[in-house]
């Protein structure tokens, strides 16, 4: 099966500090790939480049055979809205909106009517077992509930790829396990690929395969299971 998303020989520096030094990664539809490595190894930068959030200094990122760097900002924004979903450790939910509105936000930005957007958002909140916080604002929920709301928001548009950067980094182990279970189960049900950045082996255990990033270079490893 050909790759849905593929990064080749990516190089990226922030000022004089190199973050990626020839890293690469290939993701097929429906698979969960864990990107592991120590802090500062460049794994988050790799994720951001693959999602089209950052533009690499050199190298190529292809999504469904289209080079991301050739897309205009509007097209990349549309891609994030329709084909990609994001679950980050911090700063992803809009504190002024309720959880329901947060989940419906990508649909609303895409032009879906409010009633329909909120109905679909409600479905996903139900599936992720957080429908009781629908009317609360993110600041009024627990960390685990907030991350499940974020997962619901990442999946509500039916994305082909979910980018998860340390999604359990701020959670206790029990909540972390639950979030990972829900994320990977829901992704597999919808045939969405997941690029999972983590430094925890326990979290990486939910993936189909693992890639280790160290000093800006990536290396495929055998599955842990």
């Amino acid at each position: 099966m050909s790759a849905l998303l593929e990064a080749t020989d990516l190089r990226k520096s922030f000022g004089p500090t190199p973050a990626l030094d020839g890293a690469g990664l290939s993701v097929r539809a429906g698979e969960v790939v864990a990107v592991m490595g120590p802090s500062g190894s460049g794994k988050s930068t790799l994720l951001h480049c693959m999602a089209g959030i950052l533009t690499p200094d050199s190298g190529v990122v292809r999504y469904r055979d289209v080079e991301l760097s050739s897309l205009a900002d509007g097209e990349r924004s549309e891609l994030r809205r329709t084909d990609f979903g994001f679950v980050f450790q911090f700063g992803q939910l809009v504190p002024e909106l309720s959880c329901l509105e947060n989940v419906a936000l990508p649909l609303r930005l895409g032009g879906t009517k409010r009633r329909e957007a909120e109905a679909r958002a409600k479905d996903w909140l139900d599936r992720l077992e957080v429908s009781d916080v629908a009317d609360k604002r993110p600041g009024e929920t627990s960390g685990g509930q907030g991350q499940r709301v974020a997962v619901a928001r990442a999946l509500v548009t039916g994305p082909r790829v979910v980018f998860a950067d340390e999604p359990t980094g701020a959670l206790d182990s029990l909540n972390g396990e639950r979030v990972m279970q829900l994320l990977t189960t829901a992704a597999r049900e919808t045939n969405a690929a997941v690029v999972l950045v983590t430094h925890e082996a326990r979290v990486a255990a939910y993936s189909d395969r693992e890639v280790v990033v160290r000093d800006g270079r990536s290396r495929e490893v055998e599955p842990v299971r």
Partner: peptide, 16 residues
């Protein structure tokens, strides 16, 4: 600005 960044993440364009 922080709020708008969160909205950009889920696909809002610069114009939006």
């Amino acid at each position: 600005d922080r709020r708008l960044a969160a909205i950009r993440l889920v696909g809002a364009s610069r114009a939006q």
